[in-house]
Design a protein around this nucleic acid. Structure first.
Length: 296
DNA sequence: AGCACA
């Protein structure tokens, strides 16, 4: 059907990593926009449009070249929450560029994108790159951060201001293809440790080239991971003090502070790779933080 | 791979 589903020989046809838990994130219910990461830096707006526009319930999309990490993200908006979820579950994990094998990471966005005013431009683009080598830089400043309505307040009247919202096309088949996975164990006791004994007090260079630090950087958290869930696991580690979670380019990361480098090192060694109940991917990825957490 | 808080 779609060329985006064609996988190179030898690649797994179905990637279980991207089967999302059926339990919906209550904070994101009603959001009509998908957040799409894992795009190559030379992605074109047309490619995003081609991939999503024939999905049932598609409304509009926005491509942003972030100034960071040479990567692009997209915000794709649907007419209904259900059609957004349906597109997410069927396209998540798609190999976008067979040459690199990189897969799309799709999740619900923080909030619904604002509908483009006027509806003139088909392809909305924000380009924050310093060196714009691409030819489509002519779309540049079309509203900066406002373009997808990210409010720190998380107010519910984000899109309430748009009185010109056309609602005529709203009920084109939104739930004709509910292909959600049936069940998945999400009991809180489901986490699995990797069996390291805490007697490993010595410094370890398992954290690449970042110098040891009493604060740990924790990544690869599932989209549904909560601060409480992570805190419960960390609390069992000697010397644990404070946890702070943040969201960066759509992914959760966390910082955990310990009394000293010895305890942070031991905690990193024992928790590395831990699979939480909320994981939608491999286990935790833990490194020393680049700087120590500020003393409260 | 993604590293904030002041």
């Amino acid at each position: 059907m779609s060329l985006s589903h064609r996988l190179p020989p030898g690649a797994a046809a179905v990637d279980p990593y991207y089967v999302y838990a059926p339990r919906p994130d209550p904070q994101r219910q009603g959001v009509l926009t998908l957040f799409v990461a894992g795009l190559p830096d030379d992605v074109k707006p047309r490619e995003i449009h081609n991939l999503f526009s024939h999905r049932p319930g598609f409304d509009h999309c926005l491509l942003e070249y972030t100034g960071r990490g040479n990567q692009a993200v997209a915000f794709v908006t649907f007419f209904t929450h259900e059609s957004a979820l349906s597109a997410m579950t069927s396209l998540n994990g798609t190999v976008f560029d067979p040459e690199t094998g990189d897969r799309l990471h799709i999740e619900l966005a923080k909030s619904t994108s604002r509908r483009p005013r006027g509806g003139g431009d088909i392809y909305r683009v924000i380009d924050k790159r310093a060196n714009r080598t691409e030819g489509n830089a002519d779309h540049e400043n079309i509203g900066d951060e406002e373009a997808w309505g990210e409010d720190e307040d998380g107010d519910s009247d984000n899109n309430g201001g748009g009185s010109d919202e056309p609602s005529g096309t709203e009920n084109e088949n939104s739930s004709d293809k509910n292909e959600f996975p049936a069940e998945q164990s999400d009991q809180p006791g489901h986490k699995q440790q990797n069996g390291q004994s805490p007697s490993n007090d010595g410094r370890d260079k398992s954290s690449s080239d970042i110098p040891p630090c009493s604060t740990l950087f924790i990544a690869n958290l599932g989209h549904a991971c909560t601060e409480d869930e992570l805190k419960e696991v960390l609390s069992k580690e000697p010397g644990f003090h404070v946890l702070k979670m943040r969201r960066r380019s759509g992914m959760h990361v966390a910082f955990a502070d310990f009394t000293d480098i010895e305890s942070s090192t031991a905690a990193m060694n024992s928790l590395q790779g831990t699979v939480l109940a909320s994981s939608d991917n491999d286990g935790l990825h833990i490194e020393y933080a680049r700087s120590k957490m500020r003393k409260s």
